[in-house]
Design a binder for these strands. Structure first.
Length: 479
RNA sequence: GGCCCCUUCGACUAAUGGUUAGGUCACCACCCUUUCACGGUGGCUGAACGGGUUCGAAUCCCGUAGGGGUCACCA
């Protein structure tokens, strides 16, 4: 039985790289009929952000990633929040000390800093100098009894090569002399990631550890911990990183990294999921659009790439547009509606659906239905009019043509695409001008823009009274 | 700097020793067209470098270079 876990720490937003890790865990679990677990790694009290756990869960729900065990969901291996498991870690740390696989260290952070600075100055690798590695049991006991602050460190064996197999990268080995005597239990009594992670993965019977490549270099410590406990380690799969355009680790400085950012900017969860799924993994090379069911069916850790992948916003935009085009205006409406409200645009559902229908081919995000189509909800102000378009099409001739056309439009009993096209084309023909001579000025008068849906559909959506009002207004005020 | 990982078009990637190195995004051109899009057609651009192994290497091996990650009482 495959059991995987997504183990974020509640420090704020959810990074898109974390989203991809969570996705791969989910896909792997579902593909193999296994169990997907959510575990909150909140052992650093200083970084804890209020509400972050709820945010993680909300974000995962939005993305459609489901968990079979976790906080709120429950399960046989709980609790799934590490801060509720401190006694377990403490007991395990003591076991390690008893077996001489770990030791108590009394070094102060000041001493550690000094040592580190000296090492840096002399060009030696910055590592703990193992000052407390061989204290006598008696000394340790008395110092602890006297209340001296201390941590517990892993006793890394000397002169050994630590080997492990990675599902994505193959066999990897580290010389033990390059591995630090890692702190396992902090002086505040909380475990570090390394201890808590290993204990929990074992107790929760995790079979596959799927995580980012940044964990690769601490994996030998984990392997050593499994051995010290006498436990069978899980299989490891270290995912390639998501990158900025300059190929550094995807960071906040260079754009949006929070899943919440993309949600707020009008991206659909299915599009984001589809997009990040393909960053580092690809099943076919010819298909680009995959439903979650396709992804579950095809996902395979062994096809995950080794190299990092640049997060390419343009392709995300394209993919989001693809998803929006495939939806019906009726399906899109509930997603667009709240955005209209944020802009204080008040329209009926029926009207909004008609706008969505005519805008659907030309949007990249949900916000485009609002901000690129604002003239559907309110008369244009011409404040940000395209001057080039205006000077080309808002000529004296154009204005007089519109003046002549106006009564014909006003006289029309029907106001739909075909009727409007007939009126305008008839006028154009009768006056021996190209239809474009009328269409562009009309578009400008009614929308204030040089781009958008076909003029006849746009006029028909906005409606006769409003269109006539805008044309008259423009003829009088737009110069 | 030590250690570890990585390296196919600008970006995401396919191919698992024999292909004119394929697809998608972006970009360019043309078609469609009232604009912008959509759609269609075509195009541009790629194996980091150097050695091997082999009849044959993007693919296997070694080296070099470049990039990245990591070196906390953070995860």
């Amino acid at each position: 039985m495959v059991r995987v876990r997504f183990a974020p720490s509640p420090t704020g937003y959810v990074h898109v790289g974390s989203l991809r890790t969570a996705l791969y865990c989910y896909l792997y679990a579902r593909h193999h009929g296994g169990v997907n677990i959510l575990r909150i790694e909140d052992t650093d009290r200083t970084r804890y952000v209020e509400g972050a756990v709820e945010n993680i869960i909300r974000t995962m729900e939005w993305a459609g990633i489901e968990f079979d065990e976790g906080p709120f969901t429950g399960g046989a291996c709980g609790p799934y929040v590490q801060s509720e498991r401190t006694e377990i870690y403490r007991a395990h740390a003591n076991q390690l000390i008893a077996n001489n696989d770990a030791y108590v260290c009394f070094c102060t952070s000041e001493r550690l800093d000094t040592v580190r600075k000296q090492q840096q100055a002399s060009g030696t690798p910055p590592m703990y100098d193992r000052h407390c590695r061989n204290l006598s049991k008696e000394e340790v006991a008395t110092r602890i009894a006297s209340g001296e602050p201390h941590v517990v460190r892993l006793r890394i064996p000397i002169g050994e090569v630590v080997r492990f197999h990675d599902l994505i990268r193959g066999d990897i080995e580290f010389d033990s002399k390059t591995i630090d005597d890692q702190v396992l239990l902090k002086s505040d009594g909380f475990p570090t990631y390394h201890l808590a992670n290993i204990v929990d993965d074992h107790m929760m019977e995790i079979t596959h550890v799927i995580r980012g490549e940044e964990w690769l270099s601490s994996t030998p410590k984990h392997v050593l911990l499994y051995r010290a406990f006498g436990w069978e380690p899980p299989k490891f799969a270290h995912l390639p990183l998501l990158l900025n355009a300059d190929r550094s680790k995807l960071s906040k400085r260079q754009g949006d990294v929070a899943v919440e950012d993309y949600r707020e900017k009008g991206y659909l969860p299915h599009a984001l999921i589809n997009f990040v799924a393909l960053l580092g993994w690809n099943p076919s090379a010819t298909e680009e659009i995959f439903t979650i069911h396709d992804l579950i069916r095809d996902f395979d850790l062994e096809r995950v790439n080794k190299g990092g992948a640049v997060f390419n916003r343009e392709k995300l935009d394209w993919m989001n547009a693809e998803y929006m085009r495939k939806m019906s205006p009726h399906e899109l409406l509930p997603l667009v509606r709240p955005l209209l409200e944020k802009r204080n645009f008040v329209v009926s559902d029926e009207y909004a659906e008609r706008v969505i229908a005519v805008m659907q081919e030309r949007v990249h995000t949900l916000w485009d239905f609002v901000d690129f189509a604002s003239y559907f909800y309110a008369a244009p102000t011409f404040a940000d009019v395209d001057e080039k378009y205006k000077s080309k099409h808002w000529t004296e001739e154009a204005k007089s043509r519109l003046g002549e056309l106006l009564p014909k439009l006003d006289a029309s009993e029907t106001w739909n695409h075909d009727a409007l096209e007939a009126i305008i084309r008839e006028y154009a023909e009768a006056n021996a001008v190209s239809a474009g001579k009328l269409i562009h000025p009309l578009r400008l008068a009614v929308t204030g823009r040089g781009m958008g849906p076909g003029l006849f559909e746009l006029l028909s959506v906005i409606g006769k009274e409003e269109c006539l009002r805008r044309i008259r207004h423009a003829l009088q005020h737009l110069t």
